[in-house]
Each structure stands twice: as C-alpha cells, then as structure tokens.
Nucleic acid binder design. Structure first.
Length: 861
DNA sequence: TGTGTGTGGTAGC
DNA sequence: GATCGCTACCACACACA
C-alpha cells in the first residue's frame, strides 16, 4: 500500500493534469453562495490553478517530461522561481506555490538549504534547479538522484520515489507545517466534504461562537460556511493551492493522516479542547504561511490598487451586491499576506521572531545596553572586592564626563562611504515612507532631519538624502573600542548605551588641583578643570584613533550638568560648565532639554507657563509637585538649580526581563496568535536563562488596533494607532519554564477575547526576579537571537540581591541540595522544583473564554 | 496609610 | 520596493483593605 505522500502527490498530479481552463464560466468565477469567505478563497485558488492549466494547454506540443512530477520551489534559485515554474508546467509538471503539506509534492527544488531547512527537509527529495533545466535541455526526465541538494542520510533515502515506499514522513517540527495543515481550513473543509467526523460535532472548538456574545468578543470573526469551524480560517499557506486542496480531498481516512514520528509518538494536533495546550514541550513554530526563505509567488502579478481595494471591499458572500461590506480583520490580513513580501516580514513567516530581532535597531540598543550594564556591574564588583573603596569626601567638587559618539550609526556606516561624509546621510532599513531614521549626520540635521523621524518627513525636508543600511556588527566593534578607551581612564564608569558613557574622574582632578577639593587654594580649581579637559581630550583622541569616529564630551560637576554640557560640546568637541556658569547656562535651556523631560512633561509644564528652565525657578515647589507629582516635581525643581543627587555608577540590578514585538503582527486566526505568543515566551525563557534569573510574576502586553484606526497603518506592517492592555499574574514559584509562561500568557490573551486580526503588538515580561543557579542555565541549549557583546561575560545577579526574601532564599538553597548538573536533554531540576502547576496562585482558565476584562483603554498615536 | 496593579513616559540610534 | 515601532526603569493614579 502506498504512503500518504504518494497518495497525495498522486491526487495532486491527477487534479492538476485534469484541470482544464476553458473560459471564465467555471464555478470559481461565479459569485459565492452561502459558503462566504471560505468559499471565496477556494475559488480564488482554482483561479490561480487555471493560469497553470492555461499555460499547459498552450504548450502541449512540448515534451511532457515532468508528467507525474509535482514540484515546489524553496528559497532563491537560479533560474528564478518564475522561470522554474514556467519550465515545469510547460513540460507537463504540476507546481505548488505553497508548501503547507510537504507530502503533496514529489520534489522540492532549492539551490541550497539553511542548516535548519536541511533538518526539516531531511526526509524529502530536495533537488537542484539544474535538474529541471537539464531535463528540459535533454528532452527527457533525468534521474533526480544526481541533483540532490542534501547529501542524504538514511532519512532521505527512505523516501525514494522510485521504490514507492515511504517509511516515515513526519515533520521534524511537531507543531510545524504538518500540524498547521492538519488543523487548517482545508483539512476541516475536506473532511466535512468527505463526511469525515473525526472531531465529534458535540465537542465545540474552544473558539466556537458563543450564543448571545457580542461579535467583538467572539474569537475569530470569520464568515464561513456553517460546516466550517470559526477558527478554521485558511492559513495564508493555503491560499492559492487548488492542488493541495485536491490532495486533501483524497485523504480517505482522517486517522491515516496522523503519522507516527520517529519516537512513535502520534503526530496529532493538540487536543482542541485543552484550555491552554502546553505547546512548548515541542518546538512551537509560527503559523506558516509559506516557506520562510522564499516567497513562493513572486511571479504573481501584484494587485493593482483597484483590485486590492475591490478585494478588501468584496461582498463577503461574493455575490454581486450593492451592499458591499468591509472584510473582517482576519480576512483583510489574509489578503494582505498573499503578498509574499508582506508574509515574509510578518508573523506569517515561521522565522519571524529571529529575523525581526536581527534587524530591529531598538532591540539591539536595548540588548547592548543591558549587556554593558551587567558587564560594568561585574567589573565594579571585582574592583570593589580587590580594592578598598575610598569614600567620597562630602562637599568635595566633582568632575563628571559624559562621553557620546556623534551620530553613532551614521558615523560608523560612513567609514565605508567616505564620499558621502559631507552629504546628508541617514541610516535606515530602506527608503520607503515609513522607514524610521535611526541616525543622521550633521549635514542631514541642517535640513531638520532627526533621529526617529519617518523617511517620508525626512525626504520632504531634504530630497537629496542618502540612505545607508545598518551595520550592527560594525557598531559593536566601534563600541568595544570606545569602552576600551574609557575603561583605560581611572575613574568610575557607567554605561548609558552602546555609544555613550559617564565617567567620574573627580579623584584624578582634585589630586591634580592639589587641594582637598573643598576649599579654594591658589589656582586649584583651574588645575582641576584643566585636568578634566585633558582627560576628555585624551579620550576623544583615543576613540578617534581606534574607530575613526568623533566623540564629544560634556563636563560638569554632576550627571545633569555633564549631560547638558554635552549638548554644547557637539559635534566633535568638549565643553566644561564652570560652577559660576551653571545657573545662566541651564536657565536658557528649554525644559525639554533636561533629561527625563520629553513631550508629555513638556506639555504639562507649558500648561503652567513654563518653557525655559529658568521659568521653573519662578514656581514654588508645591506648584511644580501638584502639576507633575512629588518625585518629578522635586527632581525638576532641583534640576533647574543645577542639583542632581544621582551618583555615577549607581546602577540597580535588573528587575525585569521582557520580549515584545509590535511590528509585523498580522494574524488570520486565533491559533496563529497563540502560537506566536508561545514563541515569544520561548524567547523570554531563553533570555531569563541567559541572565541567570527566573521570575515570579508575568505580565502580558497586548496592543490592539484602535477602533478608529484603519486596517493598514501608514507604516508598512506597523501597529498604527492602538489600545494597549497589560495584565499580570503572580506565579506560585519563580520559573523560567517556557511552557508555564506560555500557558499563562495564552490564558491572558484568551481572556480578552480579542479578534486575532486586530492584534498589532504582543509582549511578555517577567518581574520579581530571583537568581538562577548558573549551572542550570549554562547547561541548557540556549542560543541567543543576537550576538552578545563580547565585552565581558554577563554578570550573574549577585547573591545578595535584595529581590530575594529570606524564605525564598532558603527555598532556593534547599531546592538545590539534591540537584546535580543538568544534562542538555533532561528537565531542568530547578524548573522541576519550580513547577508552578502545583503551586500557582492563579487558576488556569477552563472552558469557554470568559468575557473581556473591564480594562481601561489608552489610545496611542 | 500601605500595597498591588495597570498605565504612561523616557532614554538610547 | 516595502519594513524590522525594543526594553528597562521609574513614577503616577487608582482600588482596596
């Protein structure tokens, strides 16, 4: 008996070869009946298949050398996907645009495979594009074995097409493509058509519409045929696959569609009635829309704005109707994601999280900052344990240097483009209107271009703007040289960011002045200031020598003054604020020039008549506090007088670890949203382990499209105007367990009952951190989504962390008495102990989704 | 009044 | 051709006991 692969491939071949396209009278060109959107999508796929049938008919004189072959192209190929597609179809072959059921194709064509893909595709016939080209040249089908991409192991051999026997075809990713296929709209649709009743009708899906519940609160709100379950909306993966549809039609027995994997475990989807399935036992995979590497339909003509508009406003039933109604968010996303570029850049891409974090400048900035902070803390600890720390003489003069690269990203990237140095240059991902400018050089600033500005605005200000790409590796390298230079100076160093640091050099300066730093002896202050300037100058020289870039230095007698002095120092300079200049200097600054004062506080101050720092001095403290709150009011009252009590090097230990993504979030069903949340939790768990901490409180952050916001925000795949919702749970015991975190996070997401198509941002955060025994983390197979700064090994949270209560410490210690080094594949003993299944204080949700929580709503621009 | 939770603001390029 | 809107921390408002 043939394998399912064989059966399906055969079914696809039959369907493709039998598919004739005569005219636009076919049922796919008729209006939908009650089938609604699902039927509409099915017809759409047939339309696409018609194109192939048409081509096949026109080229029937060609030798039909690929008869019996159904191919899919993965990754970038030479010839292009479009050419390969044409060659295959015009020579009698079948072609699959999308691959959400690998068993439906006979061959996957790829030039090369990523290591991950090699594993994933290990059991399939992966052939080089030359097989197609050479076969066409030869006028006959050449042996595919000669064109293998993966140098097969045993696994690939077992799937020899010629011997007609397939031992196993289970995906290596248990919640991957297979699973998606099994739970997809196709499958359910086909099972219904076949009268398959694998899922008993009396067992309602978790997202089945609930009687009496408003539409908004229902899970995916999708017009579907009565036979189609609400969450069985077609994955984008399925769009355009009439052939796969046919393959599914031929699945005779639902049980047969579940294969045993190598471990003998049934490859079934998780039970649909499980309130929150603990997916992370197996590797969760983002809902696949298509192959991660390559958009499979690049050859498809992009829709014209009219066509796109027409689709988005299509009558949901497809009937010609005067009463057009807008599509649901899920339908809108499904159409949007037909565009392979969109799909590749969104949650539809299984590799989205890694890809996103690789490219996100803000993620890099945050990660670099955390790394540097940890490393400098460790360094400070080492120093203080080996040296007797000298207490600072109270009342002594201070010299703080604030050192900062001039337009860091731009300066570093310009080293490769010296011809652009005097021209306006920005660093951005692209030149599209919504591309954000990360950094701009001074010629660009002259036009009014600023960091964080969107390209559209920047181009309006300066039409001859030059856009350079990011070079994160080069930034890390430059930063390393920068910190090398700073750490060579005697003083207390505090990192602010990858390109910015504070250093307190008071001791050196006062020594150079020859006084105690309090009184004024003959010329001592002058000598102290000269020393500070000289240190600044030498740092600038050192960084310039090592990086070829300029840094500026602000010098003041506290952090605030060093910071504001830096403004005057830039670009490529240094500035020291003398004590007698402080009030005048500060007074002329606008309040938003003060650290911690941006548009919001600035606006509040403006409302009480304050624009400049000197205006603050006119207010009494109570007025300021009533307008801004006690802390902020007091701080600004101090700042306006040049007072800043914060010391350099006073950095608290980490209190939270989080992972969030608010770009590219476009789901077409609830399952995809939950899979994505699980992936975020996996990432969070990984970060906890990397930082040797576990957390006792988890917060989930959700951004949902604001009611008055359009479906497509101005920024491509951006979040647009959103409402944000945060909810936290306290776990009984601190954990790093991704399954536990994922369960809670999905629970929270479900509790809101949001329409998945309207989600625009998701994040998970752990607080109430406790130290993790280093061994548990070091033996785990943690792989960072980005390279850590090779500055120094990150510091573990000190054992004396104030986050830990005595009881917790004891519990932690005792829990480790029985532990031994953890092996890579065995459960983490710490996490075993910390298993919150038994001790959770929050009850897991069971049964139907509760009504949305009463939550206040915030609108974000 | 103290505590906990949710929300908001800010900083870095 | 697009686009990569993160993350940690602090402070505030409010509810509740």
């Amino acid at each position: 008996m043939g394998s399912r692969l064989e059966k399906n491939s055969d079914a696809v071949r039959k369907r493709i070869q039998g598919h004739a396209f005569d005219d636009e009278e076919g049922e796919e060109y008729e209006g939908s009946t009650f089938g609604g959107f699902s039927d509409y999508m099915r017809r759409k796929k047939l339309k696409l298949q018609n194109l192939d049938a048409d081509l096949r008919a026109q080229t029937s004189q060609n030798p039909q050398i690929f008869r019996g072959i159904v191919a899919h192209v993965n990754g970038y190929t030479q010839p292009s996907l479009a050419d390969l597609h044409k060659l295959i179809v015009s020579h009698g072959g079948g072609f699959l645009q999308y691959l959400d059921g690998k068993t439906a194709v006979t061959h996957v064509i790829a030039s090369q495979l990523t290591p991950k893909k090699k594993v994933e595709f290990a059991k399939y016939r992966i052939v080089k594009p030359a097989w197609i080209v050479d076969s066409v040249k030869a006028g006959k089908l050449l042996p595919w074995n000669d064109y293998r991409v993966v140098d097969e192991g045993v696994k690939q051999k077992v799937l020899g097409f010629e011997n007609g026997s397939v031992v196993s075809q289970a995906s290596t990713q248990r919640r991957g493509y297979r699973d998606q296929t099994e739970t997809s709209w196709y499958t359910s649709q086909m099972r219904h058509e076949n009268g398959d009743t694998e899922e008993p009708p009396e067992a309602p899906p978790p997202f089945a519409p609930e009687p009496g519940k408003p539409r908004e609160m229902q899970s995916p709100v999708i017009p579907a045929s009565p036979a189609v379950e609400a969450d069985d909306f077609p994955g984008v993966s399925s769009i355009g696959e009439a052939d796969l549809l046919a393959a599914m039609e031929d699945v005779p027995d639902a049980d047969a569609s579940f294969d045993e994997d190598d471990d003998g475990e049934l490859m079934r989807p998780p039970p649909r009635l499980d309130p929150v399935p603990a997916r992370s036992q197996s590797k969760p995979v983002l809902p696949p829309v298509q192959s991660a590497d390559v958009p499979p339909i690049t050859q498809r003509r992009p829709l014209t704005p009219e066509e796109y508009n027409a689709m988005l406003w299509q009558d949901a039933g497809g009937q010609p109707s005067a009463q057009k109604k807008p599509l649901t968010a899920e339908e809108h996303n499904a159409i949007l994601l037909q565009n392979p570029h969109m799909a590749k850049s969104s949650t539809a891409n299984p590799d989205f999280i890694n890809q996103y974090y690789r490219e996100s400048r803000l993620h890099h900035l945050s990660t670099w900052k955390a790394d540097l902070k940890a490393q400098l803390q460790a360094r400070a600890q080492e120093k203080s344990s080996t040296q007797r720390t000298r207490s600072k003489a109270p009342g002594a003069r201070r010299y703080v240097l604030h050192i900062d690269f001039d337009s860091f990203f731009a300066a570093v990237s310009l080293r490769q483009n010296p011809h652009l140095v005097d021209k306006p240059v920005v660093i951005a991902h692209g030149s599209g209107p919504g591309s954000e400018i990360a950094s701009c050089n001074y010629p660009a600033r002259k036009f009014g271009v600023k960091n964080g500005m969107w390209m559209k605005t920047a181009l309006e200000l300066c039409s001859e703007l030059n856009v350079l790409p990011y070079d994160f590796k080069a930034y890390e390298e430059a930063s390393r040289h920068f910190y090398d230079s700073i750490l060579a100076v005697e003083g207390v160093v505090q990192s602010i960011s990858i390109d910015e640091a504070l250093i307190d050099v008071s001791e050196q300066c006062i020594k150079a002045g020859g006084s105690d730093g309090k009184g004024i002896s003959e010329g001592s202050i002058y000598r102290e200031q000269e020393k500070a300037k000289q240190i600044a100058s030498s740092i600038r020289d050192a960084v310039r020598d090592k990086t070829g870039c300029e840094v500026s230095v602000g010098i003041g007698n506290n952090i605030l003054l060093a910071k504001v002095a830096l403004r005057k120092a830039k670009p490529a300079g240094q500035h020291l604020i003398k004590p007698e200049e402080v009030l005048a200097f500060l007074g002329e600054l606008e309040v938003t020039d003060l650290p911690g004062v941006a548009w919001s506080i600035g606006k509040k101050l403006e409302e009480i008549g304050v624009k400049y720092v000197k205006d603050i001095r006119e207010l009494n403290k109570e007025r300021l506090i009533s307008a801004l709150g006690p802390k902020t009011g007091q701080k600004l009252w101090d700042y306006s007088r040049g007072i800043d009590k914060q010391e350099v090097g006073e950095q608290v230990i980490r209190k939270s670890v989080s992972a969030e993504i608010n770009w590219g979030i476009r789901f077409i069903n609830q399952q995809q949203a939950e899979d994505f949340v699980q992936c975020l939790c996996d990432e969070l768990s990984k970060r906890l382990l990397e930082n040797l901490v576990k957390g006792k409180q988890m917060t989930m952050k959700i951004m949902r499209k604001a009611a008055d916001a359009g479906m497509d925000p101005p920024k491509n795949l951006g979040h647009g105007k959103c409402d944000t919702f945060n909810k936290s749970v306290v776990l009984g015991v601190a954990t790093t367990d991704k399954a536990v975190i994922g369960k809670e996070a999905i629970s929270i997401l479900r509790s809101y009952g949001f329409s998945p198509g309207e989600l625009r941002g998701l994040g998970v955060q752990m607080q109430k951190l406790e130290p993790l025994k280093p061994m548990a983390a070091s033996t785990s197979t943690v792989e960072s989504s980005q390279r850590r700064l090779q500055f120094k090994k990150p510091a573990a949270v000190p054992a004396t962390t104030p986050l830990k209560t005595t009881t917790e410490t004891e519990e932690f210690k005792s829990s480790h008495k029985k532990t031994r080094p953890k092996l890579a594949d065995e459960p983490d003993p710490i996490e075993e102990i910390a298993n919150p299944k038994k001790e959770r204080t929050v009850r897991l949700m069971e049964g139907p989704i509760p009504l949305p929580l009463e939550t206040s709503v915030k609108h974000r621009p």
